[in-house]
């Protein structure tokens, strides 16, 4: 087997997809040819490195929180919109969507940076924030602190008005595709 033949079979050799005969031929060539052996070594090394690469695990709470948000954006949002449409026949679609999403998401939500920035007394950043942010009600309770410890009067008003919701520290996310809502963090 030539070097050219060997190199053309290296991918399949590495993936263990050659027939036993072909694999034996490749092995024989590699044993005899230093150059092809070096090439094989490098390719096999790349594949093995890739196989070992890992992703940092998000905090365990993330999985239930993101499930809840997906729930709010799919299953829960449809009947809510229908109810609202039936109740009040006027009102823009965007407002309906917004209230549906915010209502559904009130069981959910997030934003560490918001909490952190308020703890630090960094009010200027939040003053400019136009987009709604989410927070989980059960997590708010767990925090055992009145919102006033964390939030400006302005943001508390926005919570009351449904344009701001806050949530778990683990749940920092970007929700660019929520209708009528773009979140910042």
């Amino acid at each position: 087997m030539t070097c050219r033949d060997t190199l053309s079979l290296l991918d399949d050799f590495i993936d263990d997809e050659l027939s036993p005969q072909q694999a034996a031929q490749v092995r024989d060539h590699l044993a005899a040819c230093e150059e092809c052996r070096a090439e094989y070594g490098a390719m096999a090394r790349v594949k093995s490195l890739l196989g070992q690469s890992s992703v940092p695990e998000p905090p365990e709470e993330y999985w239930s929180e993101v499930s809840a948000i997906i729930q709010a954006r799919t299953v829960d949002s449809v009947p809510l919109i229908r109810e609202r449409v039936a109740e009040e026949k006027s009102g823009s679609a965007q407002m309906l969507m917004r209230s549906a999403v915010v209502f559904a998401a009130s069981a959910v939500l997030l934003v560490t940076t918001l909490l952190i920035s308020h703890k630090r007394g960094d009010q200027s950043q939040s003053a400019n924030r136009q987009a709604p942010v989410y927070m989980s009600s059960h997590l708010t309770e767990q925090m055992n602190h009145p919102l006033s410890d964390y939030l400006s009067k302005q943001d508390q008003d926005r919570i009351a008005g449904g344009t701001l919701v806050i949530g778990a520290p683990s749940m920092v996310g970007r929700y660019s595709s929520l209708a009528g809502i773009s979140l910042t963090y």
């Binding site: 940092p56 799919t74 970007r174 929700y175 595709s177």
Partner: peptide, 16 residues
Amino acid sequence: HLDADEVVQETFVRIY
């Protein structure tokens, strides 16, 4: 994480 989170949400919203 932020982009991965967006992909997770958007994927399920779209397949729904």
